[in-house]
Every structure is written in C-alpha cells, then in structure tokens.
Design a protein around this nucleic acid. Sequence first.
DNA 1: CTGAGTAATTGACTTAACTCAAAGATTAGT
DNA 2: ACTAATCTTTGAGTTAAGTCAATTACTCAG
Lengths: 257, 257
Amino acid sequence: MYMQGETHMALMQSADTRYRKPVLVAVNKPFDDEDGLQALRSHPLFRNLRPRDLESLIQQSRRLRLGHHQLLYRQDMPAHHFFFVISGRLRLYRLDSSGIDRTLDSIAPGDCFAEVMIYADPPRYACYAEALKSSEVLMIPVKAYRELLDQHPEYAQAALSHYAKRAVTRFHDLEIMTVQNARDRLIRYLIDLLPNGTEQGGEVELPLPKCLVASRLAMQPETFSRILADLKSNGLVRVNRSKLFISDPRRLIEISQ
Amino acid sequence: MYMQGETHMALMQSADTRYRKPVLVAVNKPFDDEDGLQALRSHPLFRNLRPRDLESLIQQSRRLRLGHHQLLYRQDMPAHHFFFVISGRLRLYRLDSSGIDRTLDSIAPGDCFAEVMIYADPPRYACYAEALKSSEVLMIPVKAYRELLDQHPEYAQAALSHYAKRAVTRFHDLEIMTVQNARDRLIRYLIDLLPNGTEQGGEVELPLPKCLVASRLAMQPETFSRILADLKSNGLVRVNRSKLFISDPRRLIEISQ
DNA sequence: CTGAGTAATTGACTTAACTCAAAGATTAGT
DNA sequence: ACTAATCTTTGAGTTAAGTCAATTACTCAG
C-alpha cells in the first residue's frame, strides 16, 4: 500500500486524456461504527456473516481517507487487501507498455473492489485504483476474510454467488466493447446505466468525468462530445452536466439499429 | 436444452459476418470412462473432489455430441447445466436487438463454461453457445455440483479461486477492447495467445476462424485480413492458415507504440 | 468570490476503418 | 476426389472517427 512519502508517483503520466496528477496523502484512522458500516452490513459479501465475525473482520481492517486523484494501489503490486467504498468514488484503470491509461471500471459507495484477490494466486492487483474525488474506503485484509471462510465454510456460498454476478457483469461489459461504432457503444452504455433498463426513461448520472467515459468506451473525448451533442439535437437525451435524461430508451435503441 | 426436432432455429440469422447455419442433431450417450475423463480429473473445479464424489457427479451428467455449428444453448434460456469440453471447440456469443452476432469467447477441450451458472440467480445463460466443429461436451447438472458443495464446503475453495481467475481474465479481455485502433487490438490479442507471453516468440493457433476473431475484436473481416497482410509483409508474423508464427513479440509490441 | 487549472466543446482537416463487390482459397460432406 | 458452401483476400470508393488547435465552461481551493 502506498502511504505518505512515496515519490515515484511523479513517473506516472496519463497519456490518455490530459488527466490527473496523483498526490499521495493517505490518512488512516480506526473504523468507528457509524455511517459507512450500515452499507457494509448489507453487502452480499458481509450480510450473512455472524455479527461477531463481522466485528472481528472490521477490527482487522482500516478506514482509509483518500484525496482527490489519490492513488490507492498499483497494477502488479502484491495484493494483501481488498476494499469497500464508504464514500466518494474511485476508478480502476490499467497502463499499458506505452503508458496509455485505460479506464476499466468505476466504483461507487457500497461497492467492493479487488475482492477477487481473496482467492487470486498470485495475489497481485490487476490494475491501478485511484480516487476520483475525496473518498473513504475500508481496507480489509485478504487473509482475515479467508480465515473466516476457512472457519465457516458456509460463508462461501455468498462469496461464490457474488463472484458469479461479477463475472456476468464483466462479460456484459465485454459485449458492449465488441460493438463496432462509437455511437452505438455509447448508446448501449447509457442504456445499461438506466436503472429500469429499456422499459422506461429516467435520469442517469455518468459515473466518470466525460473524458474517462470516452476512454472506457474506446473513443476520443471529442468523439464522445460530438455524439452526445448529436443525440441532444435529436431530442434523444437532455444533458445537464454529468446528468443525462433519457425520455425514450427504445427510440435510442432503434437508431442504433 | 435444445435437442432433436427443434425448428425455430431457422429464425436465427447471423448478421455478423456471413457465417453459420445451425442444424440440430444432438445425440447423448452415457459417459463412459476413457479419454475425456482424464482432463476432467485435472480441472481445478474437479481435481480436489474425492473419487466417489466425482463419480457421483459424472453419473448425473451426460455426454453430449454436437455437430458442426450446432447450437448448445441460447441466451436467456434457464440454465440447469454447465459444461466441460471433452473434444472439439465451441464459441460463446450474444445476439443484440438487431440480430448482430458478437463472438465473446472460444472454448477448448479441457475447459469449463457456463460454470458461473452454479451460483447465478436467476440461472439463465448469458449468451449463446455453439460448436465450431463436431465436439463432445459433458453436461453437468448445476444442482448436482451445488449439492456437492453444500455437503462438502471445503470444495468451495477450488471453485472460488477458479471464479477469481475467470474474473481476472475477463477484466483483461476488457482491457484489450479499450485499445482504440484495430491494429493494436489485434497485436495485443496475438501476444496474449502466445504461451510464453512477451518473452519469446512462438507459434499461435487462432482459436476461431478469422472472421470470428475479427468479430471478437470489433473489426470487419476485411480489416483483419488487411492488418494481417501488413504484419506479414513487414516480417512480423508468418501465416499458415490459422497458425501464426511470431518470431519477435517485442518488435510487435513496439510498432503498436 | 475569484482565479488557476482542468475538462468540455467546436471547427477544420486527415486518416483509419467500413462498405460493396468480386475473385480465390479452404473446408465439409457426399 | 469432387462439389458446394463458406471463408478469406484484394481492390476501389466512402464515411466515421481520430488529430490538432483554439475557445468556452467548470471546479475547487484559497
């Protein structure tokens, strides 16, 4: 885990889209009950734990406060912890050999990430994770959760079905990316953000700044902007900052052929 | 499961790339020891099972023979089984609203697929599965494996780490698809097929016909063909049908910037 | 509230990738 | 071995999306 005093951060450059400049000032304090704990209790990975097991897990975890653009971990680092988001928002991304920054996922409060590390071998993070704004995460030792599962094998069921769900989601994400043109990819992405699916319209908030949504969808920010402007001028979406209102999802699907 | 006599197959049309025309002639016979069983025993999901548990699981499974282009299951069908490939090769694909066929994965002998269904809720296949050539699969009742896990919770460890590995793979697949140009996507895909990674060259066999690799990589078959021809003329790969020889993977990575 | 720095938009131009079409190569099945 | 079907390749023309550049709009910290 990178804490205060790390310096090689400066080496990192986002070739992606004129974005970001991580500065590290991690602060951790004991995790005291209150707010964030509530969401934790209802997460699939934890809600079936007996109260004393959950307590024990929390005892062994640390609450971590992350600043805007702060890096939490790096791709290929040994992974001893996984995380639960208490507040704020994070993104997962990878850097390839030429330093291009590829956003792969965004994480909202109430979500877990890197939880796949509980059973990964070797346990190394598959991507970078950074805070998109100031955030708080619970940093849970992989070992602690694993021991819990060893002692209480009945907990495995929850973990398995959580993992299964995650696999389906990734599979679906992959499907979007096989769509060959940028406009249709964006439309599919928006539809997937709608809470009620295709059935009815609604407001959607982009989980990432527009330039990172563009990166996520393998297009340039300019292209993203132009497509959105076009959809807007055709009355298909109404845009208000990062909030989009989609009145008729079916029509949107139709025009994507 | 679709067996003999199904007719609505004809409705299916591959808009993707002039491909396919499924004809259904499923034949099942009891699974008698021999060949394929060997590979099954060494698969992560089964190798830790006690012999009698494995036997019981096999007793409850059926060996299924699939013909060329035969459909095994359809997207959204209730999923009561998952599969192990004994011989042949299959592909997983989805059809979107406009009937476009998107190849998402190919499956080789010794692999499992739809195993995520063991813990999915609701249990519905997330894609279509069809044989790319005549193949044999073991059709394992989800319920049987689940019962085994309920009785022997210590088996869960293997399943969890298998699921974790799968999640990482899909994540990596997603990364490739965020690469913005077709040439670089293809190069990344080829590198990933190399058994020894970047370290040394080697021969690679495309797991799918070229037009489906193209679909998998979100490009047209013509584009695929042209890029490959270009790599060939630059001495970066040697092509022999579906076998590619890559002598210097590093150089390949370099030209992808 | 204000200003610096980042993000978003728009325009003009260029290029990569798609489309259509037709010829050649492979493969599956008889 | 032969035939029919399907894949693959190549060419020519078109279009979608990328690039570069400049302006405008946000955001956040002080």
